[in-house]
Design a protein around this nucleic acid. Structure first.
Lengths: 326, 326
DNA sequence: CAACCTCTTGACAACGTTGTCTACCTCGTC
DNA sequence: GACGAGGTAGACAACGTTGTCAAGAGGTTG
């Protein structure tokens, strides 16, 4: 900028004015400055600007894994809103590790992001308190913060969706419905289990519940044990997208009624089509990002807790009758 | 930091030394400083640090769309390498628009990223020349830069993969093999077309080629036209993952031999399993990121042009015999 | 012609760090 | 006791912007 100024024969401040489109610069002078800028290939140093102005026009996003379609969909939607507001997005994947989540959040804060959207991996977020008190808005998405922290949250209707799925299967005559899902320490998994259990009521049987990380062998083993029972399950409810796919693979073509939580590409092309309770990750991302920008514009209302509805997609697998598997 | 210094009763510089773990601070003093830091909840302002040091520890990544599994896989791998090097990742999706690609790159440069990984959308990258001359390393991934620019590039063996796919289908007796792919303006699409055409040789028939954005109606229409020919195709080669899925949907269960470019989840669970030429997006991301960091460490060798091999995954759809579709 | 106003421009400080240089203290050595 | 070495600490400038304030030129008004 200094070089531009001397090249154009003006003061630093005048260049600054031209770069920022501030009024009060003579058109001819502005033109001279622009010519110098072009000639020198100058581009403003944003770090200095940030230092001076105190706002970074950067949003931090912590998700679990960009490579998971649910989070990449959410990510894309957040990115779109962020760009619309003239900001940039710093993002990172926690890989479901609370330690990494915290590291990412702290690194983002050290870089003075204007706001944060977090899909938490851990359940202790007291470390966020200083940031919150410093006025950095934070929105939790997909999962709520740990105890003791009341901040903006955007969730899906996990329990309701699970209830809906179970009700659907019950409606087709199933009485033995198994649940296969992630570790109960994960909020969404335990919420879906809760919905499942509530809707089943007296039909609930803990031998039909498997909750663990979704490895194919583990799922195959648990399914084997369940099908070996005297009264085996006639239907399955899988607790998330990865689980649904893993389960389908473990079933190896065996036709069992199944409803999954989370939609996924090609669910309609399988035989039978896979019925699912679908969330809309892009919607969630958009809502979270817009809420964040509302806060950045100064909306100081009480923390909001938004719950997005989910939708049952009927495709065939959830409408199979309760015939006993071989 | 000033506050910390006065709270601990030391000079600014001493706090700086403690924060950065520099030697030459008495343990007792360091302890006092750390106590003050904890008490005040101080965290270093990275913008000021960047301004002073000139290096941002930030890498920019421009891809086409995070929500596309190919790019989200690549993204995840890049992120892992970047984090391993103690840096952060700024990322953005160009949405296949050259204008947005350029905007993103320029915004990243204004923020003084230490390096860039770009999946280009356009074919004119002369706007990058100032950055390159300023010493910012740039690695192109998946697609090469436009004419006149020779920089590090990591590509897949697009033409070779296409040849392999066509050879495979020819081996099963097919003589009428159609190509459905993206617009030829996209490098990967035209390379795959080239491989297809080379391998087909005299069997090439331009009536069996459809290149356009992958909308289901368009694909359905083109397929309809091809199947209505006197000598319709008995096999299809689809030019990328999205295309494969769209084509499968448009086929609506009709059994036609098919090999796709790009692997995708559930390809093995469809009936028949979908044979594909698989790239490894994570590998590509890792290679590109590692090359970038090698440059950042000062490797000043000539630009590298890396071509990653691809692999044919045999799953059933590519091994169907050339029976005439109904 | 004085007083005032507007338009354009520039000088300067400040943002929060870190690199450089210097100063002080203590210890060991001659 | 003088001297140098090594360990510890601080003063100060600089990074590249932008906000504040002031100053000069030129025009208008009474």
């Amino acid at each position: 900028m200094k070089d531009v100024a001397s090249a154009a024969g003006v003061a630093l401040k005048t260049v600054s004015r031209v770069v920022n489109g501030e009024p009060g610069v003579h058109p001819a002078t502005a033109e001279r400055v622009r010519a110098a800028i072009d000639q020198l290939g100058y581009s403003r140093n944003e770090s200095a600007r940030v230092l001076r102005r105190g706002t970074t026009a950067t949003i931090g996003l912590v998700i679990e894994d960009v490579a998971d379609p649910f989070y990449s969909g959410l990510s894309r939607a957040v990115e779109a809103v962020v760009i619309d507001h003239g900001c940039l997005l710093l993002s990172g994947s926690s890989g479901e590790e609370p330690g990494r989540e915290r590291e990412l959040v702290e690194t983002f804060c050290a870089r003075r992001v204007d706001g944060l959207i977090v899909v938490p991996a851990g359940d202790d977020h007291t470390y966020l308190r200083p940031e919150l008190e410093a006025g950095t808005p934070v929105v939790f998405a997909d999962r709520p913060p740990g105890a003791g922290l009341d901040v903006d949250t955007v969730l899906a209707d996990n329990a309701g969706g699970a209830r809906h799925a179970v009700r659907h299967l019950l409606g087709y005559g199933h009485r033995r419905i198994a649940f296969l899902g992630d570790d109960a320490a994960i909020f969404t998994a335990s919420e879906r289990l809760r919905g499942y259990q509530e809707e089943l009521g007296g039909l609930f049987d803990e031998r039909l519940v498997s909750m663990r990380p979704p490895s194919e062998e583990a799922v195959r083993g648990d399914l084997g044990r369940m099908f070996a029972l005297d009264d085996p399950p006639t239907a399955l409810f899988t607790g998330n997208g990865r689980y649904t796919v893993t389960t389908l693979r473990a079933l190896a073509g065996r036709r069992v009624a199944l409803v999954g939580f989370d939609d996924f590409e090609l669910a309609d092309l399988l035989d039978p089509g896979v019925s699912v309770v679908a969330q809309d990750p892009a919607w969630m991302g958009r809502v979270a990002a817009e809420l964040l920008f509302r806060r950045l514009r100064g909306d100081g209302g009480p923390p909001e807790h938004i719950e997005l509805p989910v939708r049952l997609m009927v495709r065939g697998s959830g409408e199979l009758p309760p015939s006993l598997p071989t």
